[in-house]
């Protein structure tokens, strides 16, 4: 198993959590985490893994920090 810090933002927090350390099997992908949290893939806007943009196919490693945002903007 690997430990991953998962951070959720904006509307994704509603009914879920802000930040949790979660355990996943080896070879878990970002997409697996998104599905596990029942976030519709179409609503995912920004995925940042250890400060870097990634896609749903990226495989996670022990100690990773994953931030999941809906499509947001401002400025």
């Amino acid at each position: 198993m690997i430990q991953v810090t998962v951070k959720l933002f904006a509307s994704f927090r509603i009914g879920r959590f802000d930040r949790e350390i979660r355990e996943y099997p080896q070879a878990t992908t970002v997409g697996d985490v998104v599905r596990d949290l029942q976030i519709p893939e179409a609503e995912v806007g920004i995925l940042l893994l250890n400060f870097v943009h990634v896609d749903l196919q990226r495989q996670l490693a022990d100690g990773d920090a994953l931030s999941i945002f809906p499509l947001v903007g401002g400025g």
Binding site: F9, A10, S11, L48, P70, V72, G73, G74
Partner: peptide, 22 residues
């Protein structure tokens, strides 16, 4: 999603976490 959901609900400051996490 940006103009219809994110901006009305959280305003432009929604970006603090985005830029920080990036």
């Amino acid at each position: 999603a940006v103009s219809g959901e994110g901006l009305p609900a959280y305003g432009t400051n929604i970006l603090t976490n985005v830029l920080n996490e990036a």
